[in-house]
Structures are given as C-alpha cells and as structure tokens.
Amino acid sequence: MRNAGTVLLLSTLLVGVLAAAPAMAALEAPALITSAGQSPGALMVRVLADQAGVANVYDATAGLDQLAGAKSLIIVVGASMKGLGAAGIDVDQEFARIESLLVEATSRGIPVVAMHVEGAPRRGSTSDDLSVLVLEYADHAIVRADGNEDGFFTRLAEEHDVTLQLVERTAEAGAVLKTLYGN
C-alpha cells in the first residue's frame, strides 16, 4: 500500500516536471551511464533511468569500448575520493577517462547529458573541475537545485550553450530523463 503511495508521489512529481519541461528533440537510447568522480550518484541515475524506461548500460568506470553501442552518453558528476580509491583510479586518470569519452562522443555525434544529482554536499573542487570539463561538451544538464545555489551550473550552462534543468529533488531527475528521451 505504501509502495503504491510512493509510486503515486513519484508519478505526481513526474507530471509536474513534464509540464514544466521545455520542448526539445528526444534523445535516443541506449544510453551509456557513467560516473565522473565515482560517487554513488551514477548508480542513482541508473535506477532513475530504469524507472523512466530509458534503456541503458551502466558502468561507473566505462571506457571507449562501452561507448560503441551507445546512442547517448550520460555522465553523472560527483567526486568521492573514497569512491575513486575503491575503483583503483586516481583523479588524473578519472579526468583522462572522462575527457576521452567526451571527445569520442562528440566526434561521433553522440549527445551528452551532464547530471549532478547529489546536491550541495557533492560540490567541491574536484567535483567542480569535473563539471567544468563535462559541461564544455554537454548538450543537456540536469542539476539538483541546492547544488547550484551559487549559480555555478547556470554560468557554465550559459557559457557553453547547454540546456540546463534544475530539479528540487533527486527523484525528479528521472522525470526529466523521461522527457529528454521522449518516453
């Protein structure tokens, strides 16, 4: 019964966000979802993408091979030193991996969605540097609003002509994905 209530609440959020979303060309699936910084945000986005019916391949440390079959690339920014350590990656390697994915996606015409869904607690110098890198190549950005209280993502989006959508709650990002993918 309570699960039904949760579904109803998520559906209500979905309708609200759909109504507010601007019209845009739908992205194609499958999407490759990866992390930039190895925080748990990418796993959250994988769950949200599943719920939104967006076919996806999730690999937090994806390389160019995983990009082969993808029709879109979702990069979820969030730096966690412990996450990087657990994945056996240092910061420089992470920047290099993400940049190679972005360059390759751009050269193949694969649209890029940048996401920052863990809010203010997941801001910081490494996360911000990764955001600067990813938004330079991104077509769309979905950001939890409390992570943008200083206008950081707004400025980046304006600078790089990225379509920015702010959500109040992490769970609302799924509805934005649903809209972006025309589901």
Binding site: T6, L9, L13, P40, M44, G119, A171
Partner: peptide, 13 residues
C-alpha cells in the same frame, strides 16, 4: 534515498 528524495528528504549516500 530516491524514495526519501521524493518525500523531500535529502539523504546523502
């Protein structure tokens, strides 16, 4: 965490 988020309760993971 996503369920809590939908209720307006932010929890980091």
């Amino acid at each position: 965490v996503l369920d809590l988020s939908a209720q307006g309760l932010h929890f980091n993971l």
